[in-house]
Nucleic acid binder design. Sequence first.
DNA 1: TGCATTTGACCATT
DNA 2: AATGGTCAAATGCA
Length: 305
Amino acid sequence: MGTLSAWSENLSTKKKKKVIKQLVEGQDSANQLQILLHNNNNNPSQQQQTEHHLSSTKAQLVDKILSSFNQTLAELTSVNVSSSHNQTGSNDDQLVKSEDCSESRRLRPKDKRGCYKRKRAEEAWTVVSATTQDGHGWRKYGQKEILNSKHPRSYFRCTRKYDQGCRATKQVQRLEDDGSQMYRTTYIGTHTCTNRSFNGPRIISNFESRGTCMAPIKQHDDRLSNLAPTTPVIKRETKEEMSGTPSDVTDLDSAMWKDLMEFECYSEPDVMISNVYSCTGIKFRNFEMDFVNGFEFDGSDECVL
DNA sequence: TGCATTTGACCATT
DNA sequence: AATGGTCAAATGCA
């Protein structure tokens, strides 16, 4: 694995058709949503009438779009991509629970580290890349030796977890193939934080758009506004944004890391994107074009994402 | 001194 | 019971 051409070859014709169908449905729903939003902005009084003509309401359309993307990505990445519409409470529980566990260790009869509620299935997707940088600020909170894996898995949470209630986490593990120096990054949950302090080149701008596409759009702002006031502000963790601390991957070769950071900071965004995506990263616009052209990826496609 | 990382312990899931 | 995910004290660094 590792190239889109190989990835495409591995897709059966049946799967390709299924994927195309799902994307077309998603596109159709997006178009309907666009019409709705457009009419709503220009003439709110016509909105209901328009909705009547269209087959779905906005919320239904959003669900359709998300479902389309989720299913397609699940098909393409072989990653279990599930809707998280009903999972939004888990992290809140966790935050509350964390508070309960914040008492001094001395006061507890027994160490209660690890008292948390494990997240269930969230939106998840995997990116195989030579770098783990994605423009977001991450704080490492754990590392684990994984059974039958040469390299440990590192766990990261968004640095905005506490000040903005962002639920995004990622897991980074170096691939077994030592020579490739590649890393598999699994992103779990979508960013709900606003990342305004960083104005430099965003290496994963497309990635972020992808994450946004997969996120439950209707929840995005609500969650921000709902969580922010109630979430205890413990501390701000914004310093590391794009600072590219080697902590992103503990066993990452430091020299390589330095090279990567220099590359990412000074390269053109398009070039950087090509560095980020490997087999599962997909830029939707080009993706659509590839589908139009018969879903054929050649070697050039791999780097033109 | 403050902040980020490390690491062992704990808990949830399978 | 095994494994993986998370917590938080200890540690290191700027």
